[in-house]
Nucleic acid binder design. Structure first.
Lengths: 203, 203
DNA sequence: GAGGCCGTGTACCAGTTGGTAAGGAGGGCG
DNA sequence: CGCCCTCCTTACCAACTGGTACACGGCCTC
């Protein structure tokens, strides 16, 4: 964003950037295996070998995708938390997650996909997420010590909260299974409901 | 189980059954795309064409996998809930899920995978799960009316609870990311912690 | 023992996959 | 001009994918 204001900062996205963008989109919502370089190339109006020129292999491309998507996600969440303490911090983070879920669901999709694949890739993502995890853990510990939050293992609480938020924000098919259509209006209601759920669970 | 006791009930699993079993395992923990019929055949010590003889195509095999895994899962959960009311019912279901997560993680994996893939398959799984969903919804509504549970939209509550339980029970890589190793001992602790989380969130 | 069905194996195949090799087109620069 | 460097293309390819056609052997029935 802000591309219209700055002068020569983001000068019409170069090919590499365009590829990465589409890669996040594709990998994020179809998964690693289901995306072929040929597909991707066609969508970009470019030959597959162009992709392989910029990123040496599909694996490398995916690694770049992970770093980009997760780095970005982390930055967004940390920015959301910044300046807030206590419950408002949780609210701010959940808001941020939902905003991403609505606008760029694939970005969260990449995280989901990486965790699904496991192995080296999960490890890579784990490293990329370390800052957020550390921050979240610290936050929870602090809130517990202050008596604002139920006393438990912060790590387990973190996993529970993560699963709940990711699930409610991104599991479109599960929502559909219980009869909830993934519309914007519903997303707002879902977020509100989720916050109540979390508030009850945490405090 | 109980194969050693019964007499001619399960007479050395026939090829079709063996294929289905391995398919659940494979699809459940590697995902649809990542499993090739050749792989599967080799693991079974059989030619790929044998698989295609019993199940006409990979798609059909996967459909059979869904029906088997999810039908079975549903039966287990309903059996667990049976006879219990109120909070003990929730505990029983969570116990059952964790038991499956420890013994046959792939069975839950199939559910996850299907929901990830979306489309016709999610629809199929949704149909297969209808009985459990209906029962759970009914249970929640009843508990709310009785005042044993926080008053909210049962559907949203269901999704939240589902996400939380599935996440904590099956998201091995997420657990690892926060430093929790997926051992049996940890699973017990996790389950206990999860129940506290749910109890706080629900009541 | 001849014929038929069931279950499995052999032989193939066309399409797609990720990846290599090599050849421009265009610009900057000596 | 000639040379190189960056970016992208055309032309291939070997491996693997799901799938078809068909032959073989054993068992049952007539």
């Amino acid at each position: 964003m802000a591309a219209t204001v700055k002068i020569a900062d983001v000068p019409a996205p170069d090919t590499r950037t365009r590829i990465l963008g589409k890669a996040i989109e594709a990998f994020g919502d179809r998964g690693y295996d289901a995306v072929s370089l040929d597909d991707l190339a066609e969508q970009l109006g470019v030959r597959k070998q162009t992709i392989l020129y910029h990123f040496g292999s599909k694996k490398e491309l995916f690694e770049a995708t992970i770093d980009s998507a997760i780095g970005d996600l982390g930055a967004t969440l940390i920015a959301a938390a910044k300046g807030n303490t206590g419950w408002p911090a949780v609210e701010a983070v959940v808001h941020a997650v939902f905003r991403i879920a609505v606008r760029q669901p694939a970005r969260l999709g990449v995280l989901r996909e990486v965790m699904r694949l496991g192995g080296e890739w999960s490890a890579r993502a784990t490293v990329a997420m370390e800052p957020i995890i550390a921050r979240a853990r610290l936050f929870l510990s602090l809130e517990m010590r202050r008596g604002h939050m139920r006393q438990t293992d912060p790590n387990l609480l973190l996993v529970s909260a993560y699963s709940t938020v990711m699930g409610v924000a991104t599991e479109v098919e599960v929502l559909r299974a219980v009869g909830i259509e993934p519309t914007l209006r519903e997303a707002v209601r879902r977020r509100r409901e989720l916050l109540k759920f979390l508030e009850a669970a945490l405090r």
